[in-house]
């Protein structure tokens, strides 16, 4: 589904990603871990098409398409969803209106008619339950005045509504208490299928107790320096990132 080859990216002339290689297949969950400043958020921003970053080398193929040639909105329409680390507030725009616009834009891209109002409402209700989102939040302005936990839950709610092919969760666990974490992870797990894939970017192992990855990658200094089964996350938690630094001789 996703194939990243020798990806180099920089911002303001400073190279952050220094040759990333990553293969993600349908049905898989990949975890990307790493210390602060290792390039985790840069990787998610580059995948989503944030213009501030310049890709200097390498390629990204998504479902057979050259992702780097697509605009951010077309990437979203092709099925890439980024759950933001810091979800943005849009005052005056209701969540419902926002999602209806997004959903119908994606449908239009695929040559489909806008969704019927009653189907949309049914979907809204169903997905709200999935992340135990208060019905009132759906009618409030996008993320405006939401608590940190509500914002994160809203991201997963949006993900459920838009039904992406590849979901990238950028530090979705940060700022969540244990109950919210359980709910968010539960939502992600329920959305999992053999046709979609998830990349979980996280600092801590704790989220991976709930969303169990097939592969864990360690990102360090702009490169994936180690990959392994889910146990690798536990090892990291136990030994800290220093052991990786020693291992790669940094």
């Amino acid at each position: 589904m996703l194939s990243i080859k020798n990806l180099h990216a920089s911002i303001g002339g400073k190279e952050i990603l220094k040759g990333i290689n990553l293969e993600v297949k349908a049905g898989e969950v990949h975890a990307i871990m790493g210390p602060n400043g290792s390039g985790k958020s840069t990787l998610s921003a580059v995948l989503a098409g944030r213009e501030d970053y310049e890709v200097t080398e390498g390629s990204i193929t998504f479902n057979g398409k050259n992702l780097l040639e697509l605009s951010p909105e077309d990437r979203a329409r092709e099925g890439i969803f980024l759950a933001f680390q810091y979800p943005i507030e849009i005052p005056g725009v209701s969540n419902v209106n926002f999602l209806k616009t997004a959903l119908n834009e994606i449908r239009a891209y695929k040559g489909l008619e806008p969704m019927e109002a009653k189907d949309f409402l049914a979907r809204l209700k169903e997905k709200q339950k999935l992340v135990e989102l208060d019905g009132k939040l759906a009618n409030r302005s996008v993320n405006e005045g939401f608590s940190g936990g509500e914002k994160k839950r809203n991201e997963i709610f949006q993900m459920a509504m838009l039904d992406p092919c590849l979901a990238i969760l950028d530090e979705t666990d940060s700022g969540l208490d244990i109950d919210a974490l359980r709910i968010v992870a539960g939502g992600v797990n329920k959305l999992k299928s053999k046709d979609n894939a998830t990349i979980v970017i996280t600092h801590y192992q704790r989220l991976l107790d709930y969303i169990v990855p097939d592969v864990v990658h360690v990102l360090f200094n702009g490169k994936i320096v180690k990959s392994g089964p889910k146990e690798l996350a536990l090892e990291l938690e136990e030994k800290g990132y220093d052991f990786i630094k020693e291992e790669v001789g940094a």
Binding site: G49, E73, R75, A76, R77, I88, I90, L103, Y109
Partner: peptide
């Protein structure tokens, strides 16, 4: 730019 990017990431031009 953040608001615009957020919208774009949801498929809105």
């Amino acid at each position: 730019e953040d608001q615009l990017f957020y919208c774009k990431q949801r498929g809105i031009d």
